[in-house]
Amino acid sequence: MQLRHIVSLLTCEILSGEDLLDLGIDCCFAADLMSDVLASAPNGALLVTGLASSQMVHTAEVADLAAIVLVAGKRPENEALAFARQRKLPLLLTGLSMFEACSLLSQHGLRGAVRKE
């Protein structure tokens, strides 16, 4: 699924990565607990989260995640947004809840992903 499809599906505001919408995404991991993301999300995954702090983007950076969708209309902290732009990491904002966002992504074929040990 292309990132631009995710943007239209979840009615996202694009906060970072406007020029990366052709990026292909094939799996998704949703969590607010960054240690869970670090433990289980495979590289290249889309992160769906309600965590708006700078740790959200640092997590995506160190775990090689493809992009972030911030749910429930939460605005990222200034440091988080600046870091996402600096690292060219797509950061999208949706007013949908985490459940609604994940449901829509799943209905349209995006699979959930857990890294195998």
Binding site: L38, N43, S53, S54, Q55, V57, H58, T59, E61, V62, A63, D64, E77, E79, F83, R87
Partner: peptide, 30 residues
């Protein structure tokens, strides 16, 4: 807390400069 994660990110950039395998960089960065 605001800067928590910056060191891991800087070290990741260093490891990338050293040309290490991607999986090694990812495991160390986490």
């Amino acid at each position: 807390f605001e800067r928590g994660g910056e060191v891991a990110t800087r070290v990741k950039a260093l490891l990338q400069q050293l040309g290490l395998p991607r999986d090694v960089i990812r495991r160390l960065s986490i």
